[in-house]
């Protein structure tokens, strides 16, 4: 036993915002080992400049945003290639946003509708001024060359 045991002192301090009450900065960050699991073929498709959706062969429901099992009947879906031309179903231009995207503002979000497909696909629209976006506007998919395996590897431009 050492009755004179002592912790070593450090030179790290604490960022203090206020003293009454005491408000300090607390830092916290995470790197996940995230698996796209059954959604993976969609992201692989982006690297090949393909937009993949899901088709339910049991009930015929067709999804623009993929899902492994049908939301209507529960059957397993199969992958199919979506058309790369669609229309703006709705839109907004974000002048503020989550912290992660603040530096990208203003950006325009759209939901894209495709002929013969029952559901929509969320994406970014570029190449238009904020006041030029319109519901029903024909749009075309483009893909980044250096794939990042994120949904933003595809984006839309006006036809």
């Amino acid at each position: 036993m050492n009755r004179n045991a002592k912790l070593p002192e450090t030179e790290e301090g604490t960022i203090l915002f206020n003293t009454d009450p005491i408000v300090i900065r607390h830092h916290y960050e995470i790197d996940y080992i995230h698996s796209y699991a059954q959604d993976s073929p969609f992201f692989a498709g982006l690297a090949k400049k393909k937009l993949l959706g899901s088709k339910c062969e049991a009930c015929g429901h067709i999804y623009a945003t993929p899902r492994g099992h049908c939301m209507e009947c529960g059957a397993a879906t199969r992958w199919f290639e979506l058309p790369q031309r669609g229309r703006v179903h709705t839109f907004t231009t974000c002048h503020f946003g989550s912290e992660a995207f603040l530096k990208e503002t203003p950006f325009t979000l759209i939901l894209v509708e495709f002929d013969g497909v029952d559901t929509l696909f969320m994406s970014r629209l570029i190449g238009v001024e904020p006041d030029e976006a319109r519901i029903g506007m024909p749009v075309r998919a483009r893909f980044v060359r250096n794939c990042k395996f994120r949904p933003t590897d595809v984006y839309f431009v006006p036809e």
Partner: peptide, 30 residues
């Protein structure tokens, strides 16, 4: 804006959040 980021994680983090996840944006589209 960090708070908005937290809240936006209550949207699909594979397909929605990374595109520019922001609840006011979602409601604006609606």
């Amino acid at each position: 804006w960090k708070g908005n980021e937290f809240i936006a994680h209550a949207s699909d983090t594979n397909f929605d959040y990374p595109v520019g996840g922001f609840y006011t944006g979602y409601y604006a589209m609606m």
